[in-house]
Design a protein around this nucleic acid. Structure first.
Lengths: 215, 215
DNA sequence: CCACAAACTTGCGTGCACGCATAGATTCGC
DNA sequence: GCGAATCTATGCGTGCACGCAAGTTTGTGG
């Protein structure tokens, strides 16, 4: 094989198209407001057909959020595998998750306002957190050697806890919504890493109970 | 007020319409296969306009699954509140959840095959489990007096665990899918109550750690 | 009993997601 | 290099979800 998963022209083109779509989506959303951006506009701005848009993203919101979520979730698996093997499971998981939702690239300012104040984008953004579940389940299964339900359940619990943290982080000021209005108070609840640690602390006992290293 | 939330004509009609839609949806799905049922067909069979269908159910699958899910999830809140106050939190939650997913009305036979072998219905059915989250969060908040994140996180973890249990219960035989084919092996993983207990046991330590009754 | 308010139904229009078939690009094997 | 296998882009058609603005039914107060 000349190239299959990385340097190949095909792969690079796909990545470029995805990137172009995502960037165009975000730019248009910021320019005209997320409600005023049609899928066709995004496709056109990226130079592909509308049909192709849906080959890359399965919803109008997905492309916008992808520009902001930056596959953060997918990297949790790698982060977890790289933690020292003698670290307690709970600590490893918590640090791996928090590390991916630390400062760099997190929506802030205009971006955050955009996502937080639009129902569809908020839902989509919160939904991206679920992507951490599979990688974590695999990592826990490897660590514990358990082949049953437990790793899946624990990963689901961790993912759910992270989701709650993100929900509470990005919760808008309840009343105002949509409409590019004026000053909406968002993210009053503290930093995301702090929220994540608080949330994950509640499920930590379950991880500890499943940790073969510290019975 | 003559009637507002129960005996009123309006409420009864709404309930009847909802029931009619749900029943029609299920019947048509069983008769012609879920893929061959249009929203318009369901609406017509129930004697309402297609537009009205979407006033009651937000997706084509929702009506079918509603006929099977029977608001099981919503009753978890009531079940939990009715558990003795001196029972440990973990036990109360587990029993409340399991009690609602016990025998009566669970999809079985043709029904189960229908739901399990259709991707859309499976997703929708699994999704109904999430409805237990809010009630459980409220109940835990009441029990523990905690007003912060913990109850939400724990409820999310419980809900996630239950979801994993249901996913594994209803998992089809991997290969065959859709198409009213012949004998597909579904639900090989044991009874749902057993799966739920196994799954919830993994998150129980987190509940115990938050239980004020047993510090 | 009647008029007004509140809630529900319906038709219409729009945007969206996606299966399918075809044409075009890239990669593979030799 | 070259042809075949594989993957991607696109157009078309269908079904679906939902906002909106009447029109209709049900509930409330006098």
């Amino acid at each position: 094989m000349t190239a299959n998963d990385n340097g190949g022209l095909r792969e690079r083109k796909k990545a470029a198209t995805r990137e172009a779509l995502s960037a165009a989506a975000l730019r248009l959303a910021l320019e005209h407001g997320p409600q005023n951006v049609r899928v066709d506009d995004i496709a056109e701005a990226a130079g592909v057909s509308p049909r192709t848009y849906n080959n890359y993203f399965s919803s109008r919101e997905a492309a916008i959020v992808a520009a902001v979520a930056a596959e953060r979730a997918l990297r949790v698996g790698a982060a977890l595998r790289e933690r020292p093997a003698d670290e307690p499971l709970a600590e490893a998981v918590i640090e791996a998750v928090v590390s991916q939702y630390d400062e760099p690239g997190l929506p802030a300012g205009e971006l955050l306002k955009l996502v937080a104040s639009t129902a569809g984008l908020r839902t989509e953004f919160v939904g991206t957190v679920a992507a951490i579940e599979q990688p974590i389940a695999n990592a826990i299964a490897t660590r514990t050697g358990d082949e049953g339900l437990a790793p899946k359940v624990l990963a689901a619990a961790v993912s759910a806890a992270a989701r709650v943290a993100v929900e509470n982080w990005i919760r808008p000021a309840e009343d105002d919504e949509e409409q590019a209005g004026g000053s909406l108070l968002v993210v009053p609840s503290g930093s995301l890493p702090d929220l994540l640690r608080k949330a994950l602390a509640s499920v930590a006992p379950a991880l500890e109970a499943a940790d073969p290293a510290a019975p």
